[in-house]
Structures are given as structure tokens and as C-alpha cells.
Design a protein around this nucleic acid. Structure first.
Lengths: 338, 338
DNA sequence: GCTCGGCATGTGCACGGTCACAATTGTGAA
DNA sequence: TTCACAATTGTGACCGTGCACATGCCGAGC
């Protein structure tokens, strides 16, 4: 059988239909797994599709269905968090049949956020996942009068919803670990406060300190980078009135360790340090970093699950058990040396 | 003037046209900056667009133009390279009016690569940027009989084209640095050999060693991860027949440093280490890592520029001056102690 | 006055799918 | 045989935009 090749352009549903001797609608039904199609017909159509190397045209689909099946990912290119969380989000979305379009923030000011959101909206994304200073993103969304469901990596749909990852508990465990070792003067290197998870970790730290009746020092507000951890360390270490630090992510912890060694401290004898995230490198810091591990894959999956449940309309997801982060004790913590 | 609101759905160019008292085609011309439109008409249309919060429908555009304006990014979620290179690619694409769709590889086997490519092709991407084992990706592309222009992060369109970043020179500089310090037994922790840049770095290492007449030891083929660097270190350090290591990325260097300290070596006295990439954390390793810095932003821009020039058909890009990576000397290298 | 050409705008259709609905075929019971 | 009804397939319109082409307008040159 000679095939009537469609000239230059990619084969369409009608080309397939013609060659298979059916209507274009039947081909469409095969594509969408419509139940009532005779097996023989289906097989014939599939055969032709294969012969023609047919691929459905996404734009046409999106146009006629009125749905783009695309999710926007708004991400601050800061050194924040391990890339694996982003990967997990993409994988989860892909598995659910969605595509992910990413917009990066060159800086985290409001203007840049608005530009990135605009870019996403122009792609008709159905929902947005935010890995960025959430509070400002909320503002920008309102500013732009955009109404798209969105979720942030660690929190649920709307600001006041409960967190699906228990950042507070993670932070409390880290803090408790230091207190149990005997530390009584502990600094907290926090993340930027318009990141919801940074704020949650800080609250966890403060709550635990309060409950354990340990006097609290004001947290240092950082920017997630190792550089900041280093600079903060140099500053803090002028007065050695503390014996431990809980950093809100591993990068800041690394920078802080750097400052410690430059100041001649021996770790962990002279200073205990706990990080957060357990990035793959953390186990190879010197000393290996005690930190709080999050299941980023699970995180990404739930993040997408939540967004999709928002998308599909009603049913608020059963946000079952929150993910409880796990404390990984390594070599960077020890009892204080007196 | 009362506006006839379009009922439920988003406003289309016809809605805009009706309210502005022009034809839909005129609106389309405004959208596409057509030269011959009276200023007053244009202003009127823009006004209505603003009132209606009109946004062009991407799917319809893609359909009618036959172009998706989307680039696929195929990325191995390995710990490879700094996230900033990905960000740079996305920024550059965005600036050029393209959208970026990312597909992650869950593993780097051929099957997974094919699945990811399929996913990208279903989005009708016009081109693909590859940050993954390029050789296998080539295979998969052929296997799938897909013909889309693509570029890899560090190399140009087709396998035998010249590299736009001179990985060889970067590697040679790193190697030369160690030789100049007096090292004569140097190991190389290479990246997976189906990554073009890993192979180029290895070649740079071998060439420099050869030219400087230093006896060469067989490179160790790694997987970019810190864990691998650590394991390789434990293995290598059983026989202490070398005084320096050049790792093909910073993560492996970090892992190797970890192994060194566990073996009781003092750095850099007993062992010199050079990395590659200069990730933001490298300056805070202990000791701070001597490494090779690449301009990732420039890299991303060129990468996209090259892809776009491939897309627009003929003109092969003038691949002007290749980016020459820069050696950043920090504390992890020193003359060998005899 | 008339033709010509360039600017500004309008008309109708194509793009490749999906949807609503109609038409046809097949099946079993009356 | 005939009819009701389900299963299967076909028909035509429609989604929102851009393209090719047609049209109307206006001033220049004869």
C-alpha cells in the first residue's frame, strides 16, 4: 500500500483518518481512549499513526480544549534548596500529564516578580508553583489581578493554610538537639522573612527555645547564600558569646563554618552547627554537617498533587499526614566545651 | 461607555476588535507591531486591551503560526553543574521571546532519555538544549527519528563542531597550575565520558600532562557526585602514590577532600586539589577550593543564541571568541610536601 | 479628470484538534 | 420480521490567531 504522504507539514489527525479509512473523529477517539471503539478499528488507526510517526499537535489540543495542561514554576535563582526539589516537581507534573514552564527571577524585587508572572501568564499556565519569596509573589498576583491557583513549595494554597511540610517541627528538632547537647547560647541564621518556610523555621526555633526555657538571641536574617553565612559568621564571632548556630539552610551553615575556621575555632569542639535541607554535599562538609533532611521528592509530588486538586475544582486535598523532616546527626555538633 | 463583557471565557481579539470598533485583523496587527497602523487606531486598541485585561492566547498563536516558540531543556537531575547555568538558559530564552519546557531525567539510561525526549516532542518544542549525557541523547534522537535542532550546554550543534566554551583550555590551566607547583603524580577524577564536556576536560588534562612531560595516570571515571569523589578518594588513598588531584567538578572535589581528611591528611600540605565550575559554595569549602570558573550566564546566553540561529535556518552563528574559563586559585593547592 | 501606487484596514479561511449531535450499524427480545 | 436500544462511527462547527488577498482611501504625476 502506497502512502499518500502529506507534503511538507507534520501529519494531522485527518491524514491519519484518510489513510486508515475512518473519520477524523474516530482518530481523535483513539487518541483519547474513548471506550466505544471497535478493537479492530483502534488497531488499524494505531498502525497508521505509527507508520506516519504521528504526534498530536499540542497547540491545537490546548486551543480546542481551552486548557493548556501547563504549570508555571516561579523560581528564585538564589542558591536556595537543592535542585532535587525542582526536579521532583517537574517529574510529578509530567507524570500527571502536565508540562512545566519555568520562569526565573533575576532578582527578588517586586518588579522582577511581576515580569516573571507576566511571562508565565502569557503561556496560559493553569497553575503556578512558587519557589520564591512567597509574600511578595502574593502581592504581585493581586497587583496583576491574576487569579490562578498556586502553591508554594512548602505551604498550601492560601496564606493561612496549614503547611504540608512541618517546617516548625524540623526546626524544633534541630534546636532541641543543640539544647540537649547542653548549649544555652544559640544563634539562628534565618532565611529571608518573606519566604514562608524561612519564617516557619524561625518560629520553630523560637518556640523550642521558649519552651525549653533557654534565653533567646535575636535571629539574624540572611539570604540563603553561603556568602551571607560567612559574612554573618565574621561579624558574630567578634563576640564569642555563643556556642552553637542553627542555620536555616545548609549553604549558610557552610559559610558560617568557613568563618569559624578562619577565626581559629575547632569544629565541633568550639562551635556546634546545624543546617537545614541535607543537600547531597552536606555529608561531605568538614566536619560533615548535622542537618534536617526533607524528603524533596515527596515534597514535589505533594506540591503538584495539591495544585492539581485545586485545578480540578472542588475537592480540597486530604492533606493527610504532613511530612515530618528528619534530623540527621553528623559531625558538626557536640557538647559545648567549657 | 458600557462594555459588553464576554461571558465566561477570556477575551479574544474579536472582543477587543468589537469594542474598539475595528476588525480582528487590526487588533492582530497591533499585537504584532505591524508598521502600517495609524497611531490613533493603535492607541485605541491598546486602550481596550488594557481595559479588558486581554492576553493573547498562546495556543491559538502557536497553532496558526505553526510555531510553538518553545524550547525544550533536557536535564539530568544529577548534581552536575550549578543551577545558575540552567537559570541563564531560561533567562536568555525568555529574553528572546521563547518559552522553556524542562524534562528531567530520572536516570541516565537510554530508556529514560527517550521518554524525556518524547515528552518534549509532545510539546512541539522547536529546539532542545541538552544538559545530560550528550552521546546517549544523540542516539535516542536518532532512534526516535526526531529531527530538531539542539545544542548542548558546552558544545555546538553537531557532535564534531568546535566547542564554544574552551573546556580543554580550562582543564589545561588547572593541570598546569598543579604541575607548576611541582606536582608530578596527579590523578584526574573525570566525569562520565558520554558527557562531551567531561571528555573535553579529560583531554585537556591528558594533553597538558603529555606536553609537560609528566607521567600520566589513568583518569578515574566518576558520576559528578560528591559521594563518588568520596568513595574514589577512599580507594585511591590506600596507596599514597600521588600528591594532587584535579576533579572535573567541584562536587567531586568536595567528596575527595572529605576522604582526605578522614585519612588524616592535612590540606593542602599533603594533597592539592583543584575543582571545576566554581559553584558559589566552593569559596567556603575547607580549605577554599582552587577551581576553574566558567561564566555560566554568558554560557547560557550563547547556548540559546546558537540554538536560535540554528532555528532561524541558514546563518551559522559567528562563534566568535570561545569563552575561556578562568583559574581561581584559593587555598586547596600548594607545593607538594617532600 | 484619471491612473497608479502605497498606506490603512477589512474579509474569509486555515491551523489541528475537540465537542455536540446525527447517523449508521449491530444485537436481542417481542 | 420488527423494533428498541446500545455501540460505533461520521458531520460540521468552533476554539483564537495569523496569513493571503481584497478593498477603500489619498496624494502624486500625467
Amino acid at each position: 500500500m502506497t502512502l499518500d504522504l502529506p507534503k511538507g507539514r507534520a501529519p494531522s489527525i485527518r491524514d491519519v483518518a484518510r489513510l486508515a479509512g475512518v473519520s477524523h473523529q474516530t482518530v481523535s477517539r483513539v487518541l483519547n481512549d474513548h471506550p466505544s471503539i471497535r478493537d479492530s478499528t483502534k488497531a488499524k488507526v494505531l498502525q497508521v499513526m505509527d507508520d506516519l510517526q504521528y504526534r498530536p499537535n499540542r497547540a491545537a489540543r490546548a486551543l480546542s480544549r481551552g486548557r493548556s495542561r501547563t504549570i508555571g514554576l516561579l523560581s528564585a535563582e538564589s542558591a536556595y534548596g537543592p535542585a532535587s526539589s525542582i526536579a521532583a516537581i517537574q517529574d510529578a507534573a509530567q507524570e500527571a500529564g502536565y508540562y512545566v514552564n519555568t520562569a526565573n527571577l533575576t532578582s527578588v524585587d517586586t518588579e522582577s516578580i511581576e515580569a516573571a508572572l507576566e511571562h508565565l501568564m502569557y503561556q496560559s499556565v493553569e497553575g503556578i508553583v512558587v519557589i520564591a519569596p512567597q509574600v511578595r509573589v502574593f502581592d504581585a498576583l493581586e497587583q496583576l489581578a491574576i487569579d490562578v491557583p498556586f502553591v508554594t513549595l512548602q505551604s498550601t494554597g492560601r496564606l493561612d493554610n496549614s503547611l504540608s511540610v512541618d517546617q516548625m517541627t524540623g526546626a524544633r528538632r534541630a534546636t532541641r538537639h543543640l539544647i540537649d547537647l547542653g548549649h544555652r547560647s544559640i544563634y539562628h541564621l534565618a532565611g529571608p522573612q518573606d519566604w514562608i518556610e524561612a519564617e516557619a523555621r524561625m518560629r520553630g526555633f523560637l518556640d523550642e527555645m521558649w519552651e525549653m526555657d533557654v534565653p533567646t538571641m535575636a535571629p539574624i536574617l540572611g539570604d540563603w547564600t553561603a556568602d551571607f553565612g560567612y559574612r554573618a559568621g565574621r561579624e558574630l564571632l567578634r563576640r564569642r558569646d555563643f556556642t552553637a548556630v542553627f542555620a536555616s539552610n545548609d549553604q549558610m551553615a557552610l559559610g558560617f563554618m568557613h568563618a569559624c575556621r578562619e577565626a581559629g575555632l575547632e569544629l565541633p569542639r568550639d562551635m556546634s552547627i546545624v543546617g537545614y535541607d541535607d543537600i547531597p554535599e552536606a555529608a561531605h562538609f568538614w566536619p560533615p554537617l548535622t542537618t534536617v533532611r526533607q524528603d524533596f521528592a515527596e515534597l514535589g509530588r505533594r506540591c503538584i498533587a495539591l495544585l492539581l486538586s485545586n485545578l480540578s475544582g472542588g475537592v480540597p486535598m486530604d492533606r493527610s499526614d504532613p511530612i515530618i523532616p528528619e534530623l540527621i546527626v553528623r559531625g558538626s555538633t557536640a557538647p559545648p566545651a567549657f
